[in-house]
Design a protein around this nucleic acid. Sequence first.
DNA 1: AACATAAACAACCGCGGCGAG
DNA 2: CCTCGCCGCGGTTGTTTATGT
Length: 222
Amino acid sequence: MGRQPCCEKNGLRRGPWTIDEDHKLMNFILNNGIQCWRVVPKLAGLMRCGKSCRLRWINYLRPDLKRGAFTEAEEDMIIQLHSRLGNRWSKIAAQFPGRTDNEIKNHWNTRIKKKMKFLGLDHRTHTPIEQHHDTDTTIKRENGESTSSHNIFSNYNIKDKKTDIITDKTSTTIEDIGFMMMSHNHQLESLNNSFELELPQNWIDSPGFHWDVFNDPRLGFH
DNA sequence: AACATAAACAACCGCGGCGAG
DNA sequence: CCTCGCCGCGGTTGTTTATGT
C-alpha cells in the first residue's frame, strides 16, 4: 500500500489560476493567515489542493513580492551565491527579499545559463568549459584596434543559433562584442593600451564588467 | 498575414526532511 | 524506534508571449 496522496485529486482544478481564485486565496490568507495549507482551499472555497494554493501564494500573490526584471547586481549576486550553494534555490532566494526561488530558478535556467555558456563557463562548476594554454586567449589591442588574426571567442563553444548574429561579418564582429564587454563603462582608456585576459571569468570579476552589456541587441540577448 | 520556433514564465510532480503520535 | 502525513524544495513540464521566416 503506497503513501496516500497529499490531497484528494478528484474534482480539483489544475492549471492556470483565475482572477476569482486569486481573490479568494488572497482574501482568505490576508484575513486568516496561514496555519495549514491542507485546509486553506477548503476554508477559502477553492477547488485546489493545498500544495497548489501554497505555490500560488508564494510565487505570485504574496504582497511583498518584488516584480520586474532582475538587475545586473542581482544577477551577479545570484551567480556568486550559486557558485557557493549550487541549485539550492530557496537558500539563494533567501538573500533576495521579494524574490521567489521559482523566479530565480527560472531566471537562471532561461537567461544566466545562456550567458555563462556564451562566456565559455560551465554553469554547474562556474569554471571554463575547456582549459586552454595557448596564446589565443591573450588579447593585445593596440592603437585602438584589435588584431585580426584571432578573436577572444575562438576557444569557446559558440554553437548557439543566436551567435550566428555575431559571427556575421557584415554586422557586428565577435571582436567588437568582446571589446564591448570588456570596455563597458570605464574601461575604454585602459584598453587603448594593451591588456591580457586568460579566462572569461576574469571579465565577470573585473570591476568594469556589467551584465547589461548583454542588453545590446547586437549580442542577440534580449 | 500565417506559421514556426524560441524564450519566459507559471504550475505540477515526486521526493526527502521532519515533527507528531 | 517506527510510521504517517504535511511541508518545502528542486526538477520538469505546460502554457503564453515574443520573435523570426
